[in-house]
Write a protein that binds this DNA or RNA. Sequence first.
DNA 1: ACAAAAGTGTTACGGTTACACCCATGC
DNA 2: GCATGGGTGTAACCGTAACACTTTTGT
Lengths: 234, 234
Amino acid sequence: MDIENGHEITYRYEKEDKVLVAVDCIIFGFDGEDLKILLIKRGFEPEKGKWSLVGGFLKKEETLETAATRLLEHYTGLENIYMEQVATFSEVDRDPVERTITTAYYALINIQEHSKNLIHQFSAKWFSASKAPHLIFDHDAMVQHALQRLRHRAATEPIGFDLLPEKFTMLQLQKLYEAIWDTQFDKRNFINKINSLNIIDKLDEKDMTTSRKGSFLYQFNAEKHKQQNGKLLI
Amino acid sequence: MDIENGHEITYRYEKEDKVLVAVDCIIFGFDGEDLKILLIKRGFEPEKGKWSLVGGFLKKEETLETAATRLLEHYTGLENIYMEQVATFSEVDRDPVERTITTAYYALINIQEHSKNLIHQFSAKWFSASKAPHLIFDHDAMVQHALQRLRHRAATEPIGFDLLPEKFTMLQLQKLYEAIWDTQFDKRNFINKINSLNIIDKLDEKDMTTSRKGSFLYQFNAEKHKQQNGKLLI
DNA sequence: ACAAAAGTGTTACGGTTACACCCATGC
DNA sequence: GCATGGGTGTAACCGTAACACTTTTGT
């Protein structure tokens, strides 16, 4: 309900406070070893020169999702990116300039595909999620919160594939899951587990770049996944 | 980040759109059988006479949490209520009167303790979560979302006790968990599981109201729980 | 032939599930 | 004494975790 009293009249919204609403994006990528986040160096005051998340203000004719999508496209050049709302942060003094609440979204992108030009243009840089510098305002808390949500989601939905190339090796997939949970898995157990899920296809193709023997490439199969209603991933 | 471009100037927040921000509360209670939600009948247009969640607008000097707490106190007379943010809903036309985004919180209250006067004053009523009427705007979606979050949280944190009296029987606790997940548990397995968690104390007191033999009362022990870092509940 | 990564199965363990009878008491 | 709800233990099952050697191939 959007209303707080019960008088028998049409409620006058006009007397209510309006505030600025922002959207901040935790953009995750994976380089084969570490889970990374994309940060940009602020080019203006306040906190000029400090690192921050990609963000912007909600426009009146947009949903939060639309705004997040717009920002992602603006900063990475990518469309159709997996995104999930994390939470809304509303401490009164979180932005020293003006009262602003902000909704955080995390996004998963294939780190190979985003625009290098745009990275340069915005003084953006990839940092390991675990070794990122301190961020402005409450952005550190947003990252932690996003990481928790990513872990939860990746344990139950096949979203990890959004962080990988379309074709990937088992070892890449394992390294990704290890990076997300900052842990180690046993190679045989991991492969058995993934195979038992029956959601990826083994291709006839090998990646020959990492060994003489070469390692088979796999591909996520959304159709197969639909038929495995609700199996947990990890 | 709250900013969307990188020009080397102080950013002018003034040109950005401001919107109304609301808070809606999914208030859960438990009557011994069903998981309930507290709804109020709107006394004004639009949608006058329809059922809706408890809600109100964010004031400029409040956080969302503060606003939710204020609304809860206003509608139930209770303070120090367990609350968790669910998500923010932002469809452009979700409120037909004016552009409004709203953040949903769920709250857990002991259904015995809230003010009956206030319930009457606001034409409020408890409904089984599974049999509630259709609500205004996007409130049905909020309830579903809240239920999912409640299930997730109650599986990992001892928040169920907020829905019960301070002293409760094992059967009450079991019925509560059954209501939250809309499922049935085996009595012996449930008791064994709960006892193995080592987070509740068996009292020397019995509830004599439901049987001739009487059933022992238990009490949540926060100290014990702290020492059981991270054991899952269900 | 050897170095370097890929690929492959089995056993042990622990937690979850299934299941049925006796106990205490008030009427 | 009997009806009613309260209280209790064990065995089967299943998924997870631990573990080491063989294969391939370029140099």
